[in-house]
Design a protein around this nucleic acid. Structure first.
Lengths: 187, 187
DNA sequence: TGAGGAATGCGGCATATTGTCACACTCGCC
DNA sequence: GGCGAGTGTGACAATATGCCGCATTCCTCA
C-alpha cells in the first residue's frame, strides 16, 4: 500500500556497489539503479569489488554468489569489515536455502533469486528484522513470467545448450523445446 | 565425510524443545532425539511451547513454521528472549528462501526442510557461521522449485489469501489450491 | 576416415496438469 | 437477513508434459 521508501537523500546520493560477473546484467541493473538515484559502481570479481570498496565505502552492495573463482559469500564479511553499516543483499541465479542461511548469518540483510528487478532489490534493502513484508513488490511476477525469465537466464548460462539446461531445470528436453518455441512471453 | 559431532555432554543431558503441530512427527523425531541423549519436551502450538520454555529454558529448540494459528517464526524471538543461548533450528515442510531468511534474521541458527531425520537436525544445531553444515549446491533452481518459492513468497505477502495470490500470479485459484495441497518440496 | 558421444528438431501418444464452471459453506458487515 | 469475499471440493474438457523413437549435425579421438 505505502509507496516504496527511497533510502536515498536527494542532497547526497547513496553509493551502491554492484558485484556480478555477468557484464550485461551489471549494466542493465546498474543503469536501473542509477536512475533511481544511486551512485553505482560495478565489479566483476571479489578482488575488484574490494578494491572499489576500499576507495569509497559503499552504503549498499548487491553481490552475486557464483563469481568466477571464490564465492561471493566470502565478500559479505569483508565488505562489512570495511564498514559495518553497509547494507548487503545477495542476488544470485543459483539460489538455495543453504546459501541463503549462510548469507544472512554472514550479515547480509536479504537474499534474492534472479531474476529480480531494481525495485525488488530496493525493497530487499529496506527489509529489517521483524518487518519481512519489506520485500513486498507491488506486482509480483506471474508464475509463467518468472519461469520464462529463469529459463532464459539458465539457458544463457549454458551457452544456449538446451539439453543441459533442461536437466538442470528438472524438466524434459522436449518440454523445454516446446516452451522456447512459444515466442509470446505470457504476461 | 567427517562424523557428526554431538553437542550433548554425557554427564548432563541437554534439554531440547520440539514444537510441531503434527503429533506423529513429534513423537517420532522426539524419540529419535531422546535416544541420542537429549531430554525432549514437545509442544504443538506457540502457547504451549512458551509455557514449557518458561518452566525449563531449553538448550535447543526445533520449531515448525506452520503451526495452527500464528507462525512459528514469532516463536523464535520469544524463545531467545527467555534465554539468548538457546539454539533454535527451524524445520518445516513448507520451506522457502523467504522464510529461511526471516528465520535466520530472527535468530535461528539453521533452517531445514522436511523430510529431515534426527541426524540432520543435530548437524543443523552444530552449524556455525563459516562452517555451513548444509551442503551448498551450486545449481540453478528447478523450475518447479522456483515456482514453489515464488508462490510461498507471494502467498506470505498476501497473508495467506489464496484468491488474491492466484490473481497476482496469473493462475487459476483452483490450480493454486491444487499446487499447495500437493507435496511441497520437489527437488 | 569412421566410430562414438552429445545435441538438436520433430512426430506421436499416454498421462498429468490446468482452466473452467458449479455448488455449498463460512465469515464479517451493514 | 442479504451481500460480498474467500474457501474447499467435484467434474470434465482443453492443454501441457513426460517419454518414446528417429534422422541429422557437429565434435573428438583413435
Amino acid at each position: 500500500m505505502e509507496p516504496i521508501e527511497s533510502r536515498t537523500t536527494p542532497s547526497e546520493p547513496a553509493c551502491l556497489l554492484l558485484v556480478d560477473d555477468d557484464a550485461t546484467f551489471c549494466r542493465v541493473l546498474g543503469l536501473a539503479l542509477s536512475r533511481r538515484g544511486f551512485t553505482v559502481a560495478t565489479a566483476h570479481d571479489c578482488a575488484a569489488a574490494l578494491q572499489l570498496a576500499q576507495g569509497t565505502t559503499p552504503d549498499y552492495a548487491v553481490v552475486d554468489l557464483n563469481l568466477a573463482g571464490d564465492s561471493g559469500l566470502s565478500l559479505i564479511p569483508q565488505l562489512l569489515a570495511l564498514d559495518s553499516m553497509t547494507r548487503v543483499v545477495v542476488l544470485t541465479g543459483y539460489a538455495s536455502i543453504a546459501t541463503a542461511v549462510e548469507a544472512i548469518k554472514l550479515g547480509a540483510v536479504n537474499y534474492l533469486a534472479k531474476p529480480a528487478d531494481a525495485d525488488q532489490v530496493l525493497a530487499a534493502f529496506a527489509a529489517t528484522r521483524g518487518n519481512p513484508a519489506a520485500s513486498v513488490s507491488l506486482r509480483p511476477l506471474s508464475v509463467n513470467r518468472l519461469e520464462w525469465e529463469h529459463i532464459q537466464r539458465v539457458l544463457r548460462e549454458n551457452d544456449g545448450n538446451i539439453s543441459v539446461t533442461a536437466r538442470q531445470l528438472g524438466m524434459h528436453r522436449r518440454t523445454l523445446q516446446r516452451k522456447l518455441a512459444k515466442r509470446p512471453v505470457k504476461f
